[in-house]
Amino acid sequence: MEILDILLSASFWAAVLRIASPLIFATMGELICERAGVLNLGIEGIMVAGAFAGWMAVYAGLGLWPGLLVALLTGMAFGALHGLLTVPFGLSQHVVGLGITMLATSSAYYAYRLSLPEVTSPPRIEPFQPVHIPGLSDLPFFGEALFSQTALTYLAFATVIAVALILYRTPLGLALRAAGENPSAVEAQGLSVTAIRIGAVMAGSGLMAMGGAFLTMSAFSSFFFEMVNGRGWICIALVVFGAWRPGKALVGALLFAGFDALQIRLQQTPLGADIPYQVFLMVPYALSILALVLMSRRAEVPAALMTPYNRGDR
């Protein structure tokens, strides 16, 4: 009964879109990396760094959009390091990814402590505001449910379309997918697997950082330690759930956000009051594991994922 009430409220659907947005950015980022053949476990830390860098840039006086650009570039910088170590040097993608997560997270925390040594609670910035779309935002129910978001949410959805178009409709996308499936074929075309993969990891890491920046620049207005809280790992599960396809991954992110928004609301019902709140907080992580299990048999993993390519050894 309560569940039905929740599902019929416009604010629930608005929350779903809001919760999904950072996941969509970061999931698209991870998807690009993995389609090119590189598992990017730096995602969790890159999201932290993006959340911090965008927020700090705005706090230091930049506008919101330039701040977002700073987050993007920060992500790309960590992506460049990840790409350099895993692609031409072919180092373990697990080890380098986790190393990048540690490096990016601790760098953000260090920079935070350096810039704001005295504060006990982080300062707030003026975040992105909901965009009023003439006509659409005024619709009954749907206006609030779907068209009361900030520009970044719409950008997240546009990103999915852009990623899908680039992957499936352009020569660049073809080359990128081939780098993840059959790298020697790419080389035979006279293209550089190394360049494609590094480029994909940089672009993907930039998107991950934007996902992090959504948290500080749209969802909340401050930077907190632990605010990313495993979202990066969840996005890795979403890529698998989406069978490495942008559209399916989007559906996964929305489904996931739906369950998350639902558990938040259920906590406040009389039913939820009897259950420890930790059970509700476990839902996202448990769902991710469940999604992996459900999809395990049907996954079409890029054939060369996690396989370094070294010209010369055939």
Binding site: L41, G230, W233, A237, M282, Y285, L292
Partner: peptide
């Protein structure tokens, strides 16, 4: 049994265990 990547499952279990 199912080919589920252990990197993600072990990572996610860290969060679940702390909540438990």
């Amino acid at each position: 049994r199912l080919g589920v990547d252990e990197v993600v499952t072990t990572l996610l279990l860290n969060f679940i265990m702390l909540l438990v």
